[in-house]
Design a protein around this nucleic acid. Sequence first.
DNA 1: ATTTATGCAAATCGTTTGCAAACCT
DNA 2: AGGTTTGCAAACGATTTGCATAAAT
Lengths: 160, 160
Amino acid sequence: MVLMTETDQLHEMVGGRLARSGQRYTDGRRDLVDALADQDGPLSMAAILERVPGMPQSSAYRHLTVLASCGVVHRIAGADDVGFFELTDELSGRHHHHVLCGECGSVGDIESSDDLEDALARAARITASRTGYAIDAHRIDLVGTCPDCLSSGAAPVRAG
Amino acid sequence: MVLMTETDQLHEMVGGRLARSGQRYTDGRRDLVDALADQDGPLSMAAILERVPGMPQSSAYRHLTVLASCGVVHRIAGADDVGFFELTDELSGRHHHHVLCGECGSVGDIESSDDLEDALARAARITASRTGYAIDAHRIDLVGTCPDCLSSGAAPVRAG
DNA sequence: ATTTATGCAAATCGTTTGCAAACCT
DNA sequence: AGGTTTGCAAACGATTTGCATAAAT
């Protein structure tokens, strides 16, 4: 292979992970991965179906289950617990967190910072020693109102 | 009132909030609040129904909706998106986050720290300026394996 | 009396599954 | 051929709702 694009590399990694789980990397799964990779943030099921025309919802869910089981995708819960899906940190190559809009339920990605990660690591250590949990991950969501909802006047009423 | 217990104060606050929303503080709602207050961590619907015998599930959900709308209770999503319910920070008087067990799906409370809250505040400020979101809350979950699941040998397989 | 709360059963929504046909190796 | 994946339709589990009754003000 003389030339290898980022997307090719991604597909190679995904194929590898699927193969290791004894699964095949079929067109449907590839399309799904493409849709997620083309995106900056997590996609809802509705958004996935729009971006992968002709894919039945049940197949999309099934693919996502398979891909999740080999660490390719990841489900996150939006403000109203609707599912959003995205490539895992390992595949996207960046550790990140999420911002949720409490108005429209949309979800976006945000970068993490060393500052925050360090504080989290300390919190995890403390929690482990106090509770006996073995901590191996964290999730952070900032919750607020997205620019769109802010400008469309649907500003939330804050307690006061 | 010569003597006022912590629980009395809690009920008074809840009653006030309900009243301000034009709602009544009925026995069922009181029982629910008692169940949540007796508890150190968030309760699943099943746990609530155990602790409030005779309450129909639909009523429990309805009460929780009402109580949530006036800031008395709060729903959080467990590792598998099953709902857990607890009193809000304002009523319990302590800001806290959660630990989720990825094995059994249980949820526990953990205290926050100034360290972590400061880092979060900085992250929120950065996110606001980069994304245009108005951030007004955050949620942090540490995900791992609880002591019970650890000891019952169901230790998770880590990638390696 | 009038408004709000409750119980029951039926509906809803996101998600999962059984089964038979299509696919890959 | 032999196992895997896909599509469809039906099943599911958590949560919500319509409606008629009971309770609170």
